[in-house]
Design a protein around this nucleic acid. Sequence first.
DNA 1: GCCGTTTTCGGCCCGACTGTTTTCAGTCG
Length: 574
Amino acid sequence: MPVHNADIAAIFEEIADLLEIENENPFRIRAYRNAARNMLELGSEARDLVEQGEDLTQLPGIGKDLAAKIIEIVQTGRCQSLEKLRGKTPAGLPELLRIPGLGPKRVSALYHELDIRTVEQLMRAAEDHRLRQLAGFGAKTEAHILEALKAHVTEDHRLKLAVAAQYANALVEYLKQNQAIKDIVVAGSFRRCKETVGDLDILVTAGEPAAVMDHLVDYDEIADVVSKGTTRATVVLRNRLQVDVRVVKPQCFGAALHYFTGSRAHNIEIRRRAQKRGLKINEYGVFKNGKQIAGKDENEVFKSVGLPWIPPELRENRGEIEAAEKGTLPKLVELKDIRGDLHAHTKATDGHNTIEQMAEAAKQRGWEYMAITEHSKRLTVAHGLDKKRQLKQIEQISQINATLDGITVLKGIEVDILEDGSLDMPDDVLAQLDLVIGAVHSKFNLSRGKQTERILRAMDQPHFTMLAHPTGRLLEKREPYDVDMARVIHQAQQRGCFLELNCHPERLDLLDTYCQMAKEQGVLVSINSDAHTTADFDNLRYGIGQARRGWLEAKDVLNTRSLAQLRRLLKRTM
DNA sequence: GCCGTTTTCGGCCCGACTGTTTTCAGTCG
């Protein structure tokens, strides 16, 4: 089995967990966690770097020791120091760390004092009231652990960004009713436009913080108040979404906004920078010798450490601080840069509106063009078009275009890529279309080699324009199929094809890291709604968020082009 | 275990809330 970066990251995380339970040096533990994160976010596979004899210590957070461990893992699939640690500490303990309220100290106490090694044993001990006997544990702690255990067994739960947005907006509207509130922003991963969010961080400025806290806990949708102080509260909504609300003074707003937007890795790096300059940054501001010198807005905070403002979507410590330093931050694409949408369905297949209605909705959004791209016949559940129906639709679009003003409907197709890489529509029909989007809708379980070959072969077809939802993942539902995206992106570059960033909230596929890879290779990404109704065009905003997380600028995006430019680019692939 | 414009040793981000303490440890974000 080839070793992937995720495997290496998992090993480093497990080492960190075990060291933590062993009460090891916290900075050593952090080094392992940093390394794990860096492995996940590495553009290329570590095993390739090892094969090419690259110097791994050049990677961020990787020194001599960890470089040796990476090589060992790549070459043997194993890690001796991990195995040694496992010999000392039972395998179930790291899982106990995942339970809210349990950290290394408590897990260690549970193990050493009560010989608890598994979630099941912990559950029994809590039910038998044996936990409260331990020093530092009481009846309340025991009850909290029991409750957390019950939740832990049933699920692990993040919400898709679009779903979280509904709850966030409703809660913000409710909070705003309180007169004490001046500013209110949903920060955290929500503001960074992560595809899923685990909780909501809501930041508020208000004259009377306590009044805001009281108002919050009166919200109808709250199932549980986890904690409530004068400036900070944690509640759980009925849908089990956790919400943290924090109140700060207006002169702290920028510092708090920066702090609560994260990511944690980004914040740590910024604070480290501040420290070097003799400054201290916390959520209340930037301080020099105990005196606040900045913090009213985010600009000030960045300025204090010698940087321009960095857009939230980039704040992952994936090179944005270095880019800011060098003045090479991208000018990220915005919704208003989009000139049209290139992936939409109508009633002819599984959509709900007519061509005319879709065109009208596109025009209302100020677009210059939109493409109708129905499924092909292989996708029977969607009533995909065969040759005859496709030709009829081509004719129909020509007629509609003749009547339209201010918007052009492009003729396209979302054609199935069959198992052998051929397309589910004859070439002579594809030749009459403005664009051909190829999509994998079947045989998700092919081996990496076969799946990759299948897609590369499809991209070789003379009329192929664009690869739809390139990894096929459905958030929280279906893993991406196993495909070598580096080769797919390279092929797109060679063939002059494009990659879709599908904006359906469940897909958001191309992933942000692949957007970055595409950009680096000069492959244009098309930010497409995959609309099945006119309202679906609004999903574009989530795709824009994802594209921004992938460092894309307007020039990196196909559908920021004018119709004339777009037509030229589409022809290039023919 | 990593790292370097206080560089090869001695640092490593920082504060709120809870529970079990009688002054603070543990956890979380």
